[in-house]
């Protein structure tokens, strides 16, 4: 009787210890043993809002709900044999490093995708998430830095999604300009087109090299003077749809302007695939999404209206309706990660 009871007690104790122990042994002893000694293994987790990052941090049930995960910067040395294990902590993502010759891999929840490559050439390479994964998507990118042993390459600052930090609050639909600015930031357009439409974000192997800027929209629409631009904006605010035959504003070549406007709006609605610079090279990672399912027609107007106001005219003060042109700053207080980002994009690998 006593023996049986002892066996029972022992089995309870063994069980309580062995389950966590077995899990940990499998994960931290067995799994690493399946790789070769010289391989450098990185376990990367993709996480969408609010972090918008590929992270090297471990994401589990306990920390997922409150923590913002740091984007990874992969520091490698020439000659490293690298294995990347990619998994997702929420929805579907896609991992793409065009300049390293790594094709896009779709990272779906529940499956670990493995990539392996050898670090060959010194430089800074950018990785991207290339399937839209929520509002932080355009900031879900970072750096793979390959150094030579005696000649380390300085790693650029990581790219952090600034969108979820401040609560913008949705402006009313009637405040078109505020709405445009809000949407431009909230939807992550800023991630690729830059703050205040400045552009300057490099798109590898894209025919024009950089993602188009939007502070030149006024020129693209052939609005040549501040007065014309102001008239057009006013007209846009008061009219539900374009083009209209009656009460057209007194703007030179208005039909032409409105045709350009329509074409611009069409690109925003239907998206576009970037043209390759080197036809045999990799697909450019940044592409213009089709926003037609996400936004209402009027919201496209609001965004383009915002672009028109981004133009810097020389004689700002004298213009009628200049209040439209007030620049607003909606950046989170303190750092400005974005400006750093565009600086660095210009210094990428040779």
């Amino acid at each position: 009787m006593v023996i049986k009871e002892t066996i029972a007690v022992l089995s309870v104790i063994i069980l309580l210890i062995s389950i966590p122990l077995c899990i940990l042994l499998y994960q931290y002893v067995f799994v690493p043993s399946t790789y070769l000694q010289e391989e450098r293994v990185f376990n990367i987790t993709a996480v969408g809002e609010p972090s918008g990052a590929y992270t090297l941090e471990e994401i589990n049930g306990l920390n997922y709900w409150w923590k913002r995960f740091a984007p990874m910067t992969l520091l490698l040395e020439v000659g490293d044999q690298v294995i990347l294990n990619l998994k997702s902590a929420d929805s579907t993502h896609q991992f793409y490093v065009p300049e390293l010759g790594l094709d896009p891999v779709t990272v779906t929840p529940g499956k670990v995708e493995t990539l392996s490559f050898t670090a060959e050439k010194k430089g800074i390479y950018q990785y991207f998430c290339t399937t839209m994964c929520g509002d932080c998507h355009t900031f879900m990118t970072g750096w793979i830095v390959i150094s030579e042993k005696d000649d380390p390459v300085k790693a650029p600052h990581p790219i952090v999604c600034p969108l979820c930090a401040p609560d913008f609050g949705i402006p009313p639909q009637t405040e078109m300009l505020d709405l445009g600015e809000y949407l431009y930031q909230k939807l992550g357009c800023v991630g690729c087109h830059g703050w205040f439409g400045k552009g300057g974000i490099r798109n590898p192997n894209y025919a024009k090299q950089y993602v188009p800027a939007h502070n030149t929209t006024t020129d693209k629409l052939f609005l040549k003077t501040p007065e014309d631009a102001a008239k057009f904006c006013k007209w846009l605010i008061t009219h539900e749809s374009i083009p209209q035959s009656e009460d057209n504003p007194d703007i030179p070549m208005f039909n032409f302007v409105s045709a350009r406007y329509q074409a611009l709006k069409d690109i925003a609605k239907k998206g576009s695939t970037p043209e390759k610079l080197d036809k045999t090279g990799p697909e450019p990672p940044l592409w213009m999404p089709a926003w037609k399912f996400r936004l209402a027609d009027r919201e496209f107007d609001a965004i383009i209206l915002y672009f028109i106001t981004l133009k810097k005219w020389e004689e700002d003060e004298e213009i009628e309706g200049a209040d439209l042109f007030t620049q607003r700053v909606m950046l989170p207080s303190g750092s400005n990660p974005i400006s750093e980002r565009s600086d660095i994009s210009a210094v990428t690998p040779a």
Partner: peptide, 15 residues
């Protein structure tokens, strides 16, 4: 024990 461990330290994705 396995479930509680998995809930705390496993994937946050339910399914």
């Amino acid at each position: 024990v396995l479930f509680i461990f998995a809930g705390f330290f496993g994937s946050p994705i339910g399914n």
